[in-house]
């Protein structure tokens, strides 16, 4: 991996994709007729939202592999994607109200899309807090893997419950599902897609950076132990 696709190239591609996505968001996509400029928040908002849910699922996936194979880098991947996913989730919760205020006139509503996203954010917080507060560091990976498995099942229940509660839908419908009433210009779809790809690249770059930090940390710990044991003898 390292040789075939060096980190610097990864960073360069990510930055380029982000700049391209800015072009598509601000220049290529047409202005929405009723909401005006503000509507352009939509592109980053939707992409971060999808990334946040994807990241939680990937955290579960990494945890599952870790429980099965006890592969340390699977756990690093789980932790990294939780950290980056938490940031994406925070971005959704920031950009959402910034769009809702001028359009709906309110910052927040307990709607069927906002509510599960907020629950997801809480799940990320729980996972990350657990990882930094476990007393015996060797057990953190196992406990976190259990937590993320319980969490991913809970996300399914969250959607079920929220649907049953039948909140009135403030949120624009069928953002990813398409549909007749979504009324998106085809060029807007292109911009959504480009932004999502840029976000995927950003996510993969940051998770990879995190995995490198974790690997280095282990190496340092091992060498330290070696030094301490040799100086003690």
């Amino acid at each position: 991996m390292k040789k075939t696709f060096p980190q610097t190239v990864h960073l360069a591609v990510t930055l380029a994709a982000l700049l391209v996505s800015l072009y598509f968001i601000f220049l290529y996509a047409p202005q929405e007729s009723t909401m005006g400029e503000v509507q352009r928040i939509f592109y980053i908002h939707v992409s971060s939202g999808n990334m946040a849910f994807l990241a939680y699922f990937l955290t579960f996936f990494g945890s599952f592999v870790y429980l099965w194979k006890r592969n340390e880098s699977a756990d690093d991947f789980a932790y990294g994607s939780a950290e980056v996913g938490f940031i994406f989730c925070t971005c959704v919760l920031i950009t959402g109200p910034l769009w809702a205020k001028p359009v709906w006139g309110i910052w927040w509503t307990w709607d069927e899309r906002l509510t599960p996203t907020f629950f997801l954010w809480l799940l990320f917080v729980g996972y990350l807090m657990l990882r930094s507060y476990v007393i015996a560091p060797g057990r953190a990976a196992l406990l976190a893997a259990v937590v993320s498995t319980l969490g991913v099942v809970d996300v399914v229940f969250d959607f079920w419950v929220i649907r049953m509660k039948s909140y009135r839908g403030q949120h624009p419908a069928a953002v990813m599902g398409g549909g007749e009433n979504s009324g998106l210009d085809p060029r807007m779809w292109v911009a959504v897609f480009v932004t999502f790809v840029a976000c995927l690249l950003l996510f993969s770059y940051l998770v990879r950076q995190y995995m490198r930090v974790a690997a280095l940390r282990r190496q340092v710990a091992r060498l330290r132990q070696l030094r301490d044991s040799s100086s003690g003898a």
């Binding site: 005006g36 400029e37 503000v38 352009r40 928040i41 980053i44 908002h45 971060s48 971005c91 920031i94 950009t95 910034l98 769009w99 205020k101 001028p102």
Partner: peptide, 11 residues
């Protein structure tokens, strides 16, 4: 639009 600038700026 200020909201737009703040949103992208923060992200």
């Amino acid at each position: 639009n200020l909201y737009l600038v703040v949103a992208y700026g923060l992200v």
